[in-house]
Computed example of a mutant assay.
Amino acid sequence: MNDNAQPGRRYRVACLGFVFDPFAQGVIDRIAPGNFDLSYAERPEDMTEAMLTESDMLLVVAPVTDGMMAKASHVRFIQKWGTGYEKIDVAAAARHGITVAITAGANANTVAEHAVTLMLTAMRRIVVADRAVREGRWIPAELRPVSQRLHGKTVGIVGFGNIGKAVARQLRGFDCRILYYKRGGPVADEAASGARYAGLDELYAQSDVVTLHCPGGAANRGMIDGAALAKMKRGAVLINVARGELVVEDDLVAALENGQLSAAGLDVFAEEPLAPGSALRGLENVVLTPHSAGSLVDDIAIMANHSFENMLAFQRGERIRAADLIVDPERPRLPLPERTAP
């Protein structure tokens, strides 16, 4: 913890990653603490050496490597915008004495809402219908054989953290039967969520819709491969708003082409932006969005305020909320002398 908070001190914060577009920057600048001096790098090529060497804290969705931490000698706190922190070298952060935190639950309802939107859009072929009308084609008879409702379906939620639970809550209005899988087993508040724990094989076999809400990283990379897809109910729908690396995309394409899956809704991909030659672009039974589940005007201030609360707590020497704290180093990096204000 920080025992050296200095009242009146200014802090330089480097904001790194694709979420920090010019519109977001304007919102964040308006609500940032008065003693924070923010700099932004929306793209990797926008990041300067000084953003690392001169910053006191990092606010990121971009990767943070061991080498970056070594250069960032003033940085003692890294705040992840969102929850997935697999692109931050947390082992290196611990070695460097850098505290790492996330914004647990801050955008859970937002991302869950996108997942439900993808379910409805994919199952009802909304994109195909919209394009047909714009092109002057009236195709209700063509849509009927490939469209289905969400109401009353069995939905399997893989990963039952804040976002998975939010999906379960939002699906209550559709009278869905909800199954969930969590690596650690059933959760204590299962009854409150209206969901029932199931093993992965059972979940795959019974679910009309399988929606992914688990973290990336080595443990889950490629978990949705040909073998997993073959275990799913024929004609099921796959939704992924979690991490692209969870899915083997070639196997997914094959399942969508041969009818093992009837549709998919994807917000994340193994390679981002999605490659121009990706076979997913040519499939009409897939809805594609550009990793935008959390890219809402409403969400910027929510995420920024949560992040700033953690940053201010750290600088005051207060403990970060347990759900957010990812790295609490045994030997925290000592603060360097304050530099001249920019």
Rank of each mutant, 00 (worst) to 15 (best):
L200R: 02
Y181H: 06
G199Y: 07
Y204T: 14
V155R: 00
E190N: 03
V187G: 05
A168I: 07
R169K: 07
D208G: 09
C176I: 03
G199W: 04
G185Q: 05
G185Y: 04
Y181D: 13
R172L: 12
K182L: 15
D175G: 12
G164F: 02
P186V: 10
V210T: 10
G173C: 06
K165N: 08
C176S: 06
R169C: 10
P186L: 07
R196V: 09
T211H: 03
A191Q: 08
F160L: 02
F160K: 00
H213M: 15
Y197K: 00
T211M: 14
R172W: 08
E202K: 02
P215G: 14
K182W: 10
A188H: 04
H213P: 12
A166V: 09
A168Q: 01
S193H: 04
L179S: 05
F174L: 11
D201L: 08
I178K: 08
D208H: 13
H213L: 15
A191W: 05
S193M: 12
G156H: 01
E190Y: 03
R177P: 06
A195Q: 02
L200A: 10
Y181P: 02
L203A: 08
Y180Q: 05
D175C: 14
G194C: 05
I157A: 01
G194P: 03
K165I: 11
R172H: 11
F174S: 04
Q206L: 11
G161H: 07
G184I: 06
V158A: 11
D189Q: 05
L179K: 02
D208T: 06
V187F: 04
V155E: 00
Y180D: 09
G184T: 13
R172G: 13
V187R: 00
C214W: 02
L171Q: 01
D175K: 09
C176Y: 02
E202G: 06
D175L: 14
R172Y: 09
Y197F: 14
R177G: 08
E190A: 10
A195I: 06
R177Y: 06
Q170P: 13
Y204V: 15
S207L: 09
E190P: 01
